[in-house]
Write a protein that binds this DNA or RNA. Structure first.
Length: 481
RNA sequence: GUCCCCAUCGUCUAGCGGUUAGGACGUCGGCCUUUCAAGCCGAUAACACGGGUUCGAUCCCCGUUGGGGACACCA
């Protein structure tokens, strides 16, 4: 039986990036589908930039998406001893050599080579110098066989690679004794028995050098699959500065994990015409053969659509638990779930693409006295509807039962009593009085969900507002400045 | 600059020699309507260009153009 082992190896130098999240998703889906082992390894070799917080953010992000790993998290930093050992072995075998060229020299020679029409690769000056451990400050370079091609069959890009003569003898170990990324990944992947490496296409051109390291190690070369990058609207690699890339930011904006997962899955991968995928369906259908080869732009409009789709699909309890923090943020207090709140969220599902938006739309219920938008008040709270508003407050106060149907009858009653006012004429003023805004769910439902006491009180306040304003306008003007 | 890669509607994509080039998001229009949505119906819109190969190219090959990635004692 062949083992199938994959890994996701993020460097914790920030928050979990959506590109990284997608790479993790692809690895995870593939491994779940094929029944292998998926492991997580934190590439924290760069101690300067790696922090414990961002490592935690990476794990949190994966957990939130529901991407679970079978082994790890391992930390590359914990394997430093092993990396040192491997470099020594390569040195002992002559597969690597010490190099005492200084950075300055290297830079000068490289520039000169390029000026002379060369490639700017390391010129191999120390390659045959047979420098020993006591040669002073030195790096260790891989002795690449420049006669031999470095090729592989990529599961996404197909036949890939280049001639050995195209690349220089790369550095494996710094002069301070620490290993470089290329050496560390290869050693770790070999030691951890990784059989399939699925990673971002930004590693595509790093692969030849890594292939050379596998050879030097005499290790079996895994299967590679490079996934095209997610690019920004400008078509370039996503930048933390300019683009929305942080998974936690999407989460904070009120995107649901199932929407993120679905969106990420369809960025670069497809399954016929299907657009909606549950996690289980992604696992069921995912395959590298249908991963495209060109970069995919992050389409936020589609994410919004997907998010609303999943907001609409969530059962009440699950919707509430996702929305709770957002609702509490608007309310400024703890919010508990009850029938009225479920009803409100139900009304808001069709009107929200993000949970922040949903919570904002719930404000008129969440706070005791929502502010009334001045423009809305000017336009809709006018003397012409004063009578109807008061009649409606009265009718609502007198209702035996509080339901959409009885509220509707109260509206009809109020309209009739106010001189056969048309229902449509009353709806907007009531909406403004009750919610403070001109947009809300159906007016009967809106009134219902806000509750009898508050609805009646707000209508009366609105009536009062109309009276006061009329009085001011009628009275002597105090000249404005 | 060198090497590598990519190229179907605005966007994500289906397509794997013969299709009216399909779907989705978006956009626009209509219906519905007490607002906003949602829903329904409809419309808009693409094979970058030039050579081959072939009876026939979106599809295969070459080139051009355009875009991207990698070229560190970063990961």
């Amino acid at each position: 039986m062949t083992t199938f082992r994959t890994r996701f190896a993020p460097s914790p130098t920030g928050f979990l990036h959506i590109g990284g999240a997608r790479t993790a998703l692809f690895n995870w889906a593939l491994t779940r589908k094929l029944g292998g082992t998926f492991l997580l390894r934190i590439e924290d070799t760069d101690l300067e930039r790696s922090t414990r917080e961002s490592e935690a953010a990476v794990l949190e992000g994966l957990e939130w998406l529901g991407i679970g790993w079978d082994e790890g998290p391992y930390r590359q930093s914990e394997r430093a001893e092993r990396h040192r050992e491997v470099v020594e072995q390569l040195l002992a075998r002559g597969a690597a050599y010490r190099c005492i060229c200084s950075r300055e020299e290297l830079e000068t020679r490289r520039a000169a080579d390029i000026a002379a029409g060369g490639k700017g690769n390391y010129d191999g000056r120390c390659r045959d110098a047979a420098l020993g451990p006591d040669c002073g400050p030195h790096t260790v370079r891989l002795r690449i066989d420049h006669e031999r091609a470095l090729r592989w069959d990529d599961l996404v890009f197909g036949p890939s690679g280049q001639e050995g003569s195209e690349i220089g003898d790369g550095i494996l170990r710094r002069s301070d004794g620490t290993p470089l990324y290329h050496l560390a990944v290869v050693v770790d992947d070999v030691d951890m028995g990784i059989t399939h490496i699925v990673r971002g296409a930004d590693h595509h051109s790093n692969t030849p050098f890594q292939l050379a390291i596998y050879r030097a190690l005499g290790a079996q070369i895994p299967t590679f699959a490079h996934v095209p990058l997610i690019v920004s609207a400008s078509g370039r690699k996503l930048s933390k500065r300019r683009d929305p890339v942080s998974l936690q930011q999407f989460r904070a904006d009120g995107y649901l994990p199932e929407a993120m997962l679905n969106w990420l899955a369809r960025l670069g991968w497809s399954h016929g015409d299907q657009e909606i995928f549950s996690a289980a369906e992604i696992v069921e259908h995912f395959d590298l053969a249908h991963v495209g080869r060109s970069g995919a732009q992050a389409d936020l409009a589609k994410l919004a659509w997907l998010n609303q789709h999943y907001i609409k699909a969530r059962p009440p309890e699950a919707l509430f638990s996702a929305a709770k923090p957002f609702l509490e943020s608007v309310a400024g207090r703890a919010v508990v779930r009850d029938a009225a709140l479920d009803r409100l969220l139900d009304l808001l599902r069709e009107r929200s693409t993000q949970l922040v938006e949903m919570a904002e739309k719930a404000r008129f219920v969440l706070v005791e006295e929502p502010e009334i938008e001045p423009d809305a008040a000017n336009k809709h709270l006018r003397p012409a509807v004063l009578d109807a508003l008061e009649k409606l407050a009265e009718a609502l106060a007198g209702l035996d039962e509080w339901s959409t149907a009885t509220i509707e009858s109260a509206f009809e009653q109020a309209c009739k009593a106010a001189g056969d006012l048309k229902l449509g004429k009353l709806a907007q003023p009531v909406r403004v009085a009750v919610t403070g805004t001109t947009a809300s769910p159906g007016i009967y439902e809106t009134v219902e969900v806000v509750g009898r006491e508050r609805a009646v009180a707000r209508l009366r306040e609105a009536a009062q507002f109309i009276r006061e304003r009329a009085a001011n306008e009628a009275g002597p003007k105090t000249g404005g400045a």
